[in-house]
């Protein structure tokens, strides 16, 4: 575990979470949530949990972003908040 990487990735993580929840366009919200997933995947590789890291990269960042985009495609793109 490298503390400099740790602190940078964790701060980016909080920023990505807040932006993903405050953007009004749901498609960009889903994209920024994908960025959040890849950041947390980086964090796990850095913390020594490589198995969790590649599961998260495949499942958390990839599949859940695809699920969100499929749902937004079938419903509406705008959000009120």
């Amino acid at each position: 575990m490298i503390f400099a990487f740790d602190i940078i990735i964790l701060i980016f993580l909080v920023v990505a979470a807040i932006i993903s929840l405050s953007v009004k366009d749901l498609l960009s919200s889903a994209m920024i949530f994908g960025i959040y997933g890849f950041l947390i995947c980086l964090l796990w590789a850095e913390m020594g949990a490589v198995d969790v890291a590649f599961t998260e990269a495949a499942v958390g960042a990839g599949v859940s972003a695809v699920f969100f985009i499929a749902t937004i495609y079938n419903t509406r793109r705008r959000s009120s908040d």
């Binding site: 796990w44 913390m47 969100f68 749902t71």
Partner: peptide, 26 residues
């Protein structure tokens, strides 16, 4: 207010709990 925003919040909640458990092993 939006249900998809609620679900993004739920996913962030889940990854936070996973972050707690993985941090225990470091």
């Amino acid at each position: 207010n939006n249900l998809i925003k609620k679900l993004i919040g739920m996913s962030i909640f889940q990854t936070a709990i996973i972050l707690f458990y993985v941090s225990l092993g470091v």
